[in-house]
Design a protein around this nucleic acid. Structure first.
Length: 113
DNA sequence: TTGTTGACTCCCG
DNA sequence: CCGGGAGCCAACA
């Protein structure tokens, strides 16, 4: 079982709906550590293949798909995102301002209920 | 306990 | 716009 911190990260990532994306920094911020973006990425790397966590919806602050340096693996992430309706430009970037999942609004809406 | 490392992010030139 | 360097927090040996 992963550490509580990672579990929290996974739970947050699960709240991201299809067609939306989020950044490592945002997830870290919601998790309580805005500076732990690297930990978020590290947690993603620790995910198993059959995970229910939409890790592919987590990208970096530049709106680009990140990975250690490989090229084949992020391909699957890109494909999944495009399949969900997330468009990427020639530079491999997406419109973060438009597609970024608003955790704050989501949490507020849940709180208003 | 200390030191290293990493799917990151921000700042500076 | 791009490259390089420092800061960050948490996991691991």
């Amino acid at each position: 079982m992963a550490s509580p911190f990672r579990q929290d990260i996974y739970r947050i990532v699960r709240t991201v709906p299809a067609g939306r994306v989020t950044t490592y920094g945002d997830v870290a911020a919601v998790a309580g550590s805005p500076r732990a973006a690297r930990q978020v990425g590290y947690a993603m790397a620790a995910l198993p293949e059959g995970t229910d966590v939409p890790w592919h919806r987590v990208i970096n602050a530049q709106g680009m798909i990140s990975h250690r340096g490989d090229v084949a693996r992020p391909m699957e992430q890109l494909q999944r995102l495009e399949d969900e309706g997330v468009a990427f430009d020639g530079g491999g970037r997406c419109d973060l301002d438009r597609l970024r999942w608003r955790f704050a609004e989501f949490l507020e809406a849940a709180d208003e209920d």
